[in-house]
Write a protein that binds this DNA or RNA. Structure first.
Lengths: 228, 228
DNA sequence: TAGATTGTTAATCGATTAACAATC
DNA sequence: TAGATTGTTAATCGATTAACAATC
């Protein structure tokens, strides 16, 4: 008897036993966004076909993507919007709360602190840290700006999971390594560098200037096509 | 041998006759960044092999990517760093200047205005527009905040190419359509929506909350793997 | 039941990697 | 010339799309 062939149906296994491609992960927040809008408009059910037309993707891709995580739909019916919305939230880890710090009270640091949207999704900024003494004691939306010398203790004492790293390039690498030592689990990096950290710390980088360069490329390309 | 003067056969330009895949375009700013660092360190030449080790990609991919745009290297030598850096700048459209406005003087709008890095790359913020009268006349880094009622005229009179759109979601779509009408060529969109605009206007969206959700996914996935 | 639509396998397409002849 | 490394073609791998049997 071939044992290998007797192991058939999935689902008994946890979601993360196989590696999901990053292309799929990158699309999840977008699904989540569209489902949230549908929910706001009191839409109860939707088929992959309808959703595909709204999102300008193929229905096939939607079904393939979702089936990486489980069978959330029903034949002949489609998907229950609220249920699917909540399932994707769980997949994305939005069913839990994250305590965050912001490291660097510059332009971007302050902008992130000022935002209320992230908090709605479970990402709560607890404190901002900087090296500039004139900022100490100031608050943004009630969030205190503190001396970066206190950062290590603060992370350890308050179970901080995520650090938004908004320091200049030349300070970012050293700080990132410290954050790892101090037990941070995820770094939301705004510095224009590629952080290489141990695999038990996750990095997500927002490359603003890369983004602007892509826009520039596309504008230039379009203009060249025009006058050729 | 002077590589700079060794002009290749095919390179005689018309970069945009074939469609370059967006995977390639997305990597260009990263190449540009690494080459800039090499240049700062006075590195004169580099082979695809060496660069691939620094960047943690394959040498093959680097050569394939670059050859979409022309033969910038030389057999037996590699690539001249400065030359390649400048060529990529041209491809990305960084050899020209863009005049920009920021629409929305909120957190992100002000943060972008405060940045000096973009200006170095040729993206100059000329003015910020908002609906809130208490802000009118204020400046950020010398950049005036003006009444959004003046935006149409300002764009038309000052040949503005790019608008950074930092309005809340519900105002962003209407404004985007207006920007198109007023002749904007590129929109750098920070609102969490998918703008669908005519093909003569390019959109580049920065989805901050999508980015944070990806971080959250990766943290959660890592923690699950650990305790299975 | 009949119709609709999923979950999933198979086919296609595109992107990445490997290999190597060309050539500096 | 001999060695190195590109530019480019061919092979592989992965992701997307198509098709359809299962089933609600």
């Amino acid at each position: 008897m071939d044992i290998k062939n007797t192991v058939t149906k999935k689902g008994a296994f946890s979601v993360s036993d196989k590696d999901i491609s990053s292309a799929v992960i990158n699309r999840l927040p977008r699904y989540y966004r569209y489902l949230g809008d549908l929910l706001d408009n009191d839409v109860v059910r939707i088929s992959s076909k309808e959703l595909s037309e709204k999102m300008h993707v193929t229905a096939s891709q939607i079904r393939q993507d979702l089936n990486n995580f489980g069978g959330f739909g029903q034949q002949g019916y489609g998907y229950n919007v609220e249920y699917l919305y909540n399932e994707i939230a769980k997949i994305l880890g939005l069913d839990r709360k994250y305590d965050m710090v912001i490291v660097g009270a510059g332009n971007i640091g302050q902008a992130i602190a000022g935002y209320t949207d992230f908090e709605k999704r479970g990402f709560k900024v607890k404190r901002i840290f900087d090296i500039n003494p004139t900022l100490f004691g100031q608050t943004i939306r009630g969030i205190l700006i503190d001396d970066v010398a206190n950062l290590e203790d603060y992370i350890k004492d308050n179970n901080i999971t995520i650090a938004a790293l908004t320091l200049p390039k030349n300070q970012a690498v050293t700080m990132a390594n410290n954050l790892v030592k101090w037990g941070i689990k995820g770094i939301w990096n705004f510095a224009p560098i590629d952080l290489r950290l141990p695999s038990n710390v996750k990095v997500e980088t927002v490359h603003l200037s890369d983004s602007l360069m892509r826009l520039s490329y596309n504008i230039r390309e379009m203009e060249e096509d025009k006058d050729v």
